[in-house]
Amino acid sequence: MITIEMLRNFGADTEEGLARCYNNEALYLKLIGMLPNEKNFDNLSAALAADDLDAAFEAAHALKGVLGNLSLTPMYEKSSQITELLRERTRMDYTPMLKELLDMKERLTAMIND
């Protein structure tokens, strides 16, 4: 089961994340536990694969909001980077950035399911 310590090692700003949850550790970990089911990872991948930059922006933007609220700093920063590029509808190869983001998600999922 994932712990605050593990999240801190992952790079999360757990102090801020916990404060946002009234220092309720159980709540914070419960919210983190919901992340593997977050549909916008799939939405972003699908939209980028289909070259639909509008839909990709919406998905990235939504992810950024969620990751920010969870204070998952490395993932939040990556999603912000993708969001800003998509905001300008920048045509480029998003695969490396997307992979980085999805890899982090996988690592986190593994910790949650462990």
């Binding site: 949850c21 309720n24 969620v66 609220n69």
Partner: peptide, 13 residues
């Protein structure tokens, strides 16, 4: 909010 995590967080607050 369409994001379940955000809803859950706000509801708790």
């Amino acid at each position: 909010d369409d994001e379940a995590i955000n809803r859950e967080l706000l509801q708790a607050i």
